[in-house]
Design a protein around this nucleic acid. Sequence first.
DNA 1: CTGAAAGCGCTTACAG
DNA 2: CTGAAAGCGCTTACAG
Lengths: 328, 328
Amino acid sequence: MPITIKDVAKIASVSPSTVSRVISNNPSISEETRKRVFQAMEALDYRPNAIARSLANRRTNTLGLIIPNSETDLFDNPFFIRAMRGISIYSQKSGYHIMYTYTRNEAEELKFLKDYVHSNLVDGIILMTTMENDACIEYLKNEKFPFVVIGRPEKADHTLWVDNDNFQAMYNMVNLLVNEGVDRFAYIGGSMAYNFSKDRFEGFRSALNVRGISIEPEMVIHEAEISIRSGYVACEKIFSKGMPAAIVTTDDLLGHGALNYLETHDIEAVRVTGFNNISMNEFHKNLLTSVDINSEMLGYKASKLLIENLKNTSKVNHYIIETKIVER
Amino acid sequence: MPITIKDVAKIASVSPSTVSRVISNNPSISEETRKRVFQAMEALDYRPNAIARSLANRRTNTLGLIIPNSETDLFDNPFFIRAMRGISIYSQKSGYHIMYTYTRNEAEELKFLKDYVHSNLVDGIILMTTMENDACIEYLKNEKFPFVVIGRPEKADHTLWVDNDNFQAMYNMVNLLVNEGVDRFAYIGGSMAYNFSKDRFEGFRSALNVRGISIEPEMVIHEAEISIRSGYVACEKIFSKGMPAAIVTTDDLLGHGALNYLETHDIEAVRVTGFNNISMNEFHKNLLTSVDINSEMLGYKASKLLIENLKNTSKVNHYIIETKIVER
DNA sequence: CTGAAAGCGCTTACAG
DNA sequence: CTGAAAGCGCTTACAG
């Protein structure tokens, strides 16, 4: 027999309405009765039933999280768990809970998204990635259901999003290498269906352009899968065409694949760079210079942005998270 | 104005009770009216309100997941995300949702655990790790709140748990090495406050015992933190004492730390083994033989066990997940 | 096989 | 500043 608001009301000699107002911090309650009610709650070790509150006020204080398809190694990428940590930390602070669901493909993404939206279980949704013609974004916009997306969407209007400045981060990385004297570049990136891949590639292209270094198309590889294996395989193609002075990649897993290739083939003096600054880099003998994208902050700010908007206390529709080049 | 059970009832010319019975698959409904109700639901695109259902039948069909403290690299360990994936996949199948919360220390663990238990938001809890004198297990037992724990707890009676046979896995690994001719062993493990650390160490000890190989205490290191760094640091201690023929570790991160040490110091012909078979192993030049603990299956079976018990369809209180040595 | 009614534990206009 | 009442959208004994 659980303790309810009625039990508290009886002990405190007030009505259930009053107890409810005390719980929700309604300012119209006198200090005297507030104190009495708190005492009663304490005495009974009363905890409000979150489900009942949700039904009555039509808010669940819960956010839904869609973790995208990843048969690939992508899933061992610490990005997701780090972002989920940031999401959890901000949400805890503001009294929100987080539901997640793992999906294997876009069809499942959409299916579970609908489940979240129609079940009334969550007040808003966090999408962990952005794709070209993203069906999830499309759907949520149509339904006018609150959501935030990690990664700048194609049409950023009327959409909440957080992202790094991927163009700038890659631009700066290439510049750094040019300043070190690198004059021949290879590039390994992920699928151009992702906006962050496009942005990073554009940063690469623009930086070389500005510095007057030509891009060699056969040294530019876009791999469908972001993994150590892909990085390795891409190098086989690259080195069949020539010998770059640096291999710029869009992910540390690709970068480590490249490093493995270099080591296996006893190739020296080729710089390799990546993104994400995964912990594996730190003690690795082969040095990988990497962009720390601050995944945890991406998650943190994503939930912040969404929750602020649910409470109507936000003026902005996006946050840019600072990146940092970690040189090695 | 959301569509409710009443709207459906009106269209189908039945009472709300009947609609409810159709939704919950109550067998006492005639085929004829069942069909009519389904048609009405379809016509209105009706979706039951999960919150209202939860309040009425006192089940939320939601599980709560506590992700333990990890200021350390532990968090980049793919174990967590893989287990969470398994948990999600089984839960989806049986119509359960998953909430997670990240915690920074045992005090927070307990705090958020209480939050879950008292908010009535979840029907059961999944604990991702087991510790010595685990306060969370203690608490949940006292509250008689349903839970499952990944990792065999100290007192396994009246507790649901899933685990590998960590003793056996390590025992087999050591045996394999002995058969290959290894006659001098070093050991790097995690904190002995974790049962899996204890089990793995016992497997190590017993296997050497049986094969008549003595353990050199100064070559046995228990690190508080499971990380690449710790593995490296442990090797500094080990090699100041002598030259083992194999370094057996309880985690691939420790193993990679050891490999890095060997490489940095140009030490060859020392075998290194780990646990988890992380993806980093696959393309790494230095070969790490590893125990694949099947993290995803641990998560999968954990939610299966918990959900089966919530539905009273389970006879067992634990599952052992098979491990597999991946030789390299 | 089906319906009317009470109930799950809250919130919130409305009235005073 | 506080209470009585209706309502949130379901479920489920009870009765027929």
